[in-house]
Amino acid sequence: MSVGVRGTGVGSFPGEGQRDYDEALSVVLGELAADEHGLAFVPEVPGRGAGAAMTGRTLGLVTELDADLQPEGWRLTGTSGASPADQRRARSLLAQDLDALEEQASAHTGPFKVQVTGPWTLAATVERPRGDKLLADHGARRDLAQALALAVSDHLADVRRRLPDASELVLQLDEPALSAVLAAGVPTASGFGKHRMVHPPEASEALEWVLAAAEAAGATPWVHCCAPDVPIGLLRGAGARGVMVDLDLLDAGGHDAAAEALEAGDTIVLGVVPTTGPLPGDKVLVERVLRWLDMLGLDPEEVGAGLAVSPTCGLAASTPAGARRALELARNVARSVSG
């Protein structure tokens, strides 16, 4: 059986302080960086505050738009000039995290993954200056996606500078809200209604701007969506060369779309390691992955590097020991499936 299946993580880790981030980074590098079946990544520790969580962390990268933190969450200010203090703090915290990465892994020669929140999840969570989500404003969500594309280019250039010998950079676009955006499932500010659905062509266009920016910067673009009804075909059509899914949430159409992606040479990252409850042993998860491949009529040898294994979602609600074990399981399962 060919070597190539990789184990990785979605991104988030438990903790509340900088020491917890440093420990998370050490765990990621220790479990994944030195193994041919591991795909290391920049960990996220959202317990440190809003600027370290997925929305704030990404807004810290977006220099084209100013945002501040309100009791209801992040909001664009509608002003220009110096970035608000909350956004500057988020930017500074990420720079500090990348400094730690450079210090510990500047000589890393394998693949490496970074995570950024996608345009539709941002549009569903960030407010306009006068209230309600950006999702309610066609022009605002377009501006956001274009600003994010620029931010992704700059971010990847920064990571490449810090990891000059990495064999591959992967950009993971986190889109947990995408299915709800497409299905008119995002609540309005009042909570009594739902935002109108975004039609697939517009959803695809915004994703394409960001994914194309990643590819132009020399990275392989993936999209992570740990929700039901993952639109795998739409994501691949927009330029995603990999899609990260939760196996428990895939319906029949999702299984077929995942098989089609693998057969076409794209990557499917199969979320099989639980993030809640007791963790199973390696053998149980290996058998589950092999049964899934068999159900789809796919030969593990032919799938090769197109398949990766991960936890079902982030690990922020886990314990430090549980998060370490989850990554170890993902790597071990990948190694076993590879033979």
Rank of each mutant, 00 (worst) to 15 (best):
R241V: 13
R241K: 13
G242L: 08
V243Y: 01
M244P: 02
V245R: 00
V245G: 03
D246R: 08
L247Y: 11
D248E: 12
D248Y: 07
L249Q: 13
L249R: 14
L250Q: 03
L250F: 01
A252L: 13
G253A: 11
G253R: 02
G254E: 08
H255E: 15
D256I: 11
A257G: 06
A258N: 10
A259S: 13
E260Q: 13
E263T: 13
A264Q: 06
A264S: 14
A264K: 06
G265T: 01
G265V: 02
G265L: 01
G265W: 00
D266Y: 12
T267H: 15
L270D: 07
G271T: 08
G271V: 09
G271S: 00
V273F: 05
P274D: 01
P274H: 07
T275D: 01
T275I: 15
T276N: 03
P280R: 01
D282N: 12
D282T: 14
K283V: 14
K283S: 13
V284F: 03
V284D: 09
V284I: 07
V286M: 01
V286N: 04
E287S: 07
R288V: 02
V289P: 08
L290C: 02
W292S: 10
W292P: 06
L293P: 11
D294T: 13
M295R: 15
G297Y: 02
G297W: 06
L298Q: 04
P300S: 10
E301S: 13
G304Q: 00
A305R: 13
A305H: 08
A305F: 03
V309E: 11
S310T: 10
P311S: 05
T312K: 14
G314N: 05
A316P: 01
S318L: 04
T319F: 08
P320S: 09
A323Y: 09
A323R: 07
A323Q: 05
R324C: 09
R324L: 11
R325I: 01
R325Q: 11
R325M: 01
A326R: 15
A326V: 12
